[in-house]
């Protein structure tokens, strides 16, 4: 078990390293001079050189790359071209903001989706519940997440005027956790979280349903029914067994899901890491964009690892080798 985790961590490191390298060179291949953005007109040549040096943009590409790696190892992501401050200081609050919508959104989406999928899978084959459930889930799955977001905005924000749909509200001079423990912040949270939940439900629902449909004809289900337990309990057995494929899908699908969350952040102007990433790319703010991609790669790799380990917890038949 420990050897397995160790090996998987090593594999993860390789993946992250590869992503980092590709990103570094990708941004350099783009035919534009990053200094253009920072160099003020009429700046002297010496001043420009000094600036380049400060940003680590001197020397050959190789030298720049090695320096970048060395800094990365030391935990130094460099400075943002745009914000003129350490990348880390820019990203950290953005990450926290993203977690505020991603964690509840994904958890609720997975739970609600799995519960609905269990119900739809357990419903009579070919009945209204099954057909309606599949139809609605398929439609929502086919809907781009920005449409979901805009629809929520239109209905709850513009039309009904119940909920705010822009940003996080004014924190005033609150700092730390107090920034988040505001009624206004929680109100602003509702719509983006809802968008993530709706975006995430259909895939969970459909996967859970097909698992339950497959399991309900298994022999062990017959015996569970014969034992005279409640119908809900029988469905639970089928659902419990269907969780296995769900988990294998859930964590790796995080990569795709992150794309959905980026869109949600943009639609609701939510200052999260996804929105920041898009902005950084359009501003050619390489250090910031590279760091954001690096963090995403780490997250996805860790999610895959978590999926593997959770699977082992859920399915006693799994052995780690």
């Amino acid at each position: 078990m420990r050897a397995y985790i160790l090996r998987r961590l090593l594999q993860s490191l390789v993946v992250v390293f590869a992503v980092t390298t590709i990103m570094f060179f990708l941004f350099r291949i783009v035919p534009s001079d990053p200094t253009v953005m920072m160099v003020e007109r009429g700046m002297s040549e010496e001043a420009r050189q000094a600036l380049l040096e400060r940003w680590g943009l001197t020397g050959s590409l190789w030298q720049q790359y090695l320096r970048y790696l060395a800094n990365l190892l030391a935990g130094d992501f460099g400075n943002s071209f745009f914000y003129r401050m350490p990348v880390w200081d820019v990203l950290l609050p953005r990450i926290v903001n993203t977690l505020w919508i991603a964690v509840p959104g994904l958890l609720l989406g997975a739970l609600i989706g799995a519960a609905l999928g269990m119900a739809v899978g357990w419903a009579r084959r070919g009945g209204a519940v099954e057909r309606g459930g599949i139809l609605i889930a398929t439609i929502i799955r086919g809907t781009p997440s920005f449409i979901i977001g805009i629809a929520l905005l239109a209905v709850f924000s513009s039309w009904l005027g119940w909920l705010p749909g822009f940003g996080m509200g004014n924190a005033g001079d609150a700092t730390g956790i107090a920034r988040y423990l505001r009624w206004e912040f929680l109100l602003h949270l509702i719509l983006p979280v809802l968008a993530v939940v709706i975006y995430f439900i259909p895939e969970n629902l459909l996967l859970m349903r097909s698992g339950v449909v497959e399991n309900r004809t298994e022999d062990y289900i017959e015996l569970v029914r014969a034992k005279g337990v409640s119908d809900a309990r029988v469905a639970w057995h089928a659902g419990r067994n269907s969780m296995l494929p769900l988990i294998t899908w859930l964590f790796p699908a995080l990569a795709e899901t992150i794309a959905g969350i980026v869109v949600v952040e943009i639609v609701f102007s939510w200052p999260g890491i996804g929105r920041e990433l898009v902005l950084a790319v359009t501003r050619q703010d390489y250090p910031l964009a590279q760091a954001a991609f690096f963090l995403l790669a780490v997250m996805i790799v860790l999610a895959n690892l978590a999926a593997d380990l959770t699977y082992g917890k859920l399915d006693p038949r799994v052995v780690y080798r």
Binding site: R240, N241, D315, R317
Partner: peptide, 8 residues
């Protein structure tokens, strides 16, 4: 062989 729930 298949009469018992495999994960319980």
């Amino acid at each position: 062989m298949n009469a018992l729930d495999p994960v319980i």
